[in-house]
Each structure stands twice: as structure tokens, then as C-alpha cells.
């Protein structure tokens, strides 16, 4: 990795420089909360944000997208191109970068997903260090650190940033767009101090010992009925989750009925019809079974394939849940057998 130091006052230069060649998407304030949005003015950039309402996944896997245009008569695909202009996602926290790495596992593999991958290829990622908020529990999964998956990562050291350039492209944009200097020993010592303080700022902990075994061994635990009673099956947890990738596919005909589009939309395993088959059988008919499945898949199903849990501890689901279900409490309940 290649390291540089950037004075904080110079940061707008980097944003302005990037904007000449890329669409810059960054955290901005909206109604007192934060969202990733195209950055119209470098002055609107809010690198002090806590967390965004929606995770960055929507820039790679939109809530609704067209997969292909088709013609009905001969069942032919007319167009399945994904047009993406070069973009920079600026200001991602470590949890959200780690979340994209988890998404990559799903959308690559034996059947690479061209829609996701095209956007991923066209998008530079610039990460920035953060301050833990009261719903963050990334420390539980070690996702408060990120080692790859970004082009540049900026660690805030008060009056300057410690810039870790992971890719050639990342090093190039730092050199081209902002005044910077080489790292000296004092910078590295400061970096160490800052990242230690950051790690020490996490206080939330939960026992994650042997979760896959517990999920199987306590499959019939009454805790799931209790969480099932609370859950409203609204699916908000999935929508705001940076690692939830499930989708539904549907066809929509044009008014002339001769052509149309096949589109996909975000879906949620919390919706009642999610596992229902044509003959009327629903494999997860009860709310309890659906809440359980969400945790079962994240902490065991995904793990069985990719050796990581499908959660980065961003806490968005805990904030979004109208019934107050917090994953930290669910995992604690699984350990203790008691819902608190």
C-alpha cells in the first residue's frame, strides 16, 4: 500500500478535482439525517456523519432496476446493457466497505451478475474513518477495520488525513487532484494513536461464540416466538441492511403489450410470500420462522459458504425497526435463552 498525508483544508480540492472526471456521490445532510447523494457542491460534504439512512448498496444494486428489455412475439431479449458513467463513492465508513466485499461474494462466483459488477468496476471507493455511534457494533465482527476493497482510505488525524492508497487508481487521483506529502514517522505514530483511540471507543459487546451451532441446536427455542410476536414483517431491516441482497424479479409490459421490461426489486425474507411456492405451500409461514431465518442465514447460511457472517454491525436495522428489534439483543437472547 502507498501512503500520503493530506492537509484537511485541502480536501475540497480533491472533491473538486474528482468532480471534473467522475460523478461524486457522498454523504450529505437530509432532514437532520444523512444520505449518500450526488454531491452538487463540495461545501455540502459531511464527513462527520454518523451513518446514512440507506447503505451504499443502492449504487451497485438499486432498489429497482431493469435487467432487460424484451419482445413478446419471439421471446427475444432486445437490450440488457447497463450504462454506468465513472463514479466515486466518497466517504464510506469501514463497515460499509466491508459490506460491499460481502456483497461481492454473492454477485461474483460461478454466475457473475453483470449489472452489479459493471457498476462496481466503474466506481472508485474512498473510505473515511468514523466515530462509533450508540447503535454501532462493528467491533463485534471486526468490521470496524478495513484492509482492502477501497481505492483510498482517509484516516482523520485532526488537521490532516492519513491517506492509504490501495489501488493504482487511488494513488493516481491523490497525486493528481490534491496537494499531498510523504508520510514521516510522526504521522505513522499519530495514525497508531488515532486508530487505538477509535478501537477503545467501542463499548457495546455481545457474545458471538459458536453462533452456527446455537442456531441449529436451539432451532426450536421460544425466543423466536417472542421476536416473532414483536416483528411486523415490514422488511425495513432488509431494506436498510448493507448486506441484504435478496431480490424479486417481475415483468412489466409496455402499453402496446408487444414489448416490456424484466426488472428486479429489493425483496425481504421477512415478507410473508417470500418462501411460498405455487401449490399453496409456504415454507416460512409464521413471523417467528421468518425472523429466525434472517439470523439463521446471516450468521450461518452465508458463513457456511464464505466464512464470514453477513452482518457488519452498522446498526441500521436497529434504528429502522419499528418494533425495536436489535440484532445485538437477538444474539444475546440466543446465547442466554432470554429476550430482554
Amino acid at each position: 500500500m502507498f501512503f500520503r498525508v493530506i492537509d484537511k483544508v485541502r480536501l475540497p480540492d480533491l472533491v473538486r478535482g474528482l468532480a471534473t472526471e467522475y460523478e461524486v456521490i457522498a454523504p450529505v445532510e437530509k432532514d437532520g439525517r444523512f444520505v449518500y447523494a450526488p454531491l452538487e457542491d463540495p461545501g455540502l460534504l459531511r464527513l462527520d456523519y454518523d451513518t446514512t439512512l440507506l447503505p451504499p448498496k443502492k449504487w451497485f444494486f438499486p432498489a429497482e432496476e431493469t435487467l432487460m428489455r424484451f419482445r413478446v412475439a419471439d421471446n427475444e431479449v432486445l437490450n440488457d446493457e447497463v450504462a454506468v458513467a465513472p463514479r466515486v463513492l466518497f466517504g464510506l465508513h469501514p463497515c460499509d466497505i466491508n459490506a460491499l466485499l460481502l456483497m461481492d461474494n454473492v454477485f461474483t462466483g460461478k454466475y457473475p451478475d453483470p449489472y452489479y459488477m459493471r457498476r462496481r468496476e466503474k466506481t472508485l471507493l474512498i473510505g473515511v474513518s468514523c466515530t462509533p455511534s450508540d447503535t454501532c457494533f462493528c467491533n463485534v465482527w471486526d468490521t470496524n477495520e478495513v484492509h482492502w476493497g477501497f481505492d483510498v482510505f482517509l484516516t482523520d488525524m485532526g488537521d490532516r488525513y492519513f491517506a492509504s492508497c490501495r489501488t493504482v487508481k487511488g494513488a493516481e487521483i491523490i497525486d493528481r487532484f490534491v496537494e499531498n506529502r510523504a508520510v514521516i514517522d510522526e504521522d505513522t505514530r499519530e495514525f497508531q494513536s488515532v486508530v487505538h483511540d477509535f478501537k477503545d471507543a467501542f463499548h457495546r459487546d455481545v457474545d458471538t461464540t459458536q453462533l452456527p451451532v446455537l442456531l441449529d441446536a436451539k432451532f426450536d427455542s421460544p425466543i423466536w416466538d417472542e421476536f416473532g410476536e414483536k416483528c411486523l414483517s415490514c422488511g425495513a431491516c432488509s431494506m436498510v441492511c448493507p448486506t441484504c441482497y435478496c431480490f424479486d424479479v417481475h415483468d412489466r409490459l409496455d402499453p402496446d403489450q408487444k414489448s416490456g421490461v424484466r426488472a428486479r426489486t429489493w425483496d425481504s425474507c421477512q415478507f410473508k410470500e417470500f418462501a411460498a411456492v405455487a401449490h399453496g405451500q409456504n415454507f416460512r409461514d409464521s413471523r417467528a420462522s421468518r425472523v429466525k431465518y434472517r439470523y439463521y442465514h446471516k450468521q450461518w447460511g452465508y458463513l457456511s459458504k464464505f466464512e464470514r457472517v453477513l452482518c457488519v454491525g452498522c446498526g441500521r436495522c436497529a434504528r429502522a425497526c419499528p418494533a425495536g428489534i436489535n440484532p445485538v439483543n437477538v444474539i444475546a437472547a440466543l446465547q442466554t435463552g432470554e429476550v430482554r
Partner: peptide, 24 residues
């Protein structure tokens, strides 16, 4: 097994059974 499926290639998530996907 028969399960609900959309993509058939291990991505859409519908056919989850236990810790596996029915489709792949």
C-alpha cells in the same frame, strides 16, 4: 426439494433451506 426460486443461480435468496440454497 421444491422451493420458491427467482434467479436459480444462488443470488435472489428465495430458495433458502436451512443454511443452503436449493438452487445451487
Amino acid at each position: 426439494f421444491e422451493r420458491r426460486m427467482k434467479c436459480g443461480i444462488g443470488k435472489c435468496g428465495h430458495c433458502g433451506v436451512g443454511h443452503q440454497y436449493t438452487c445451487v
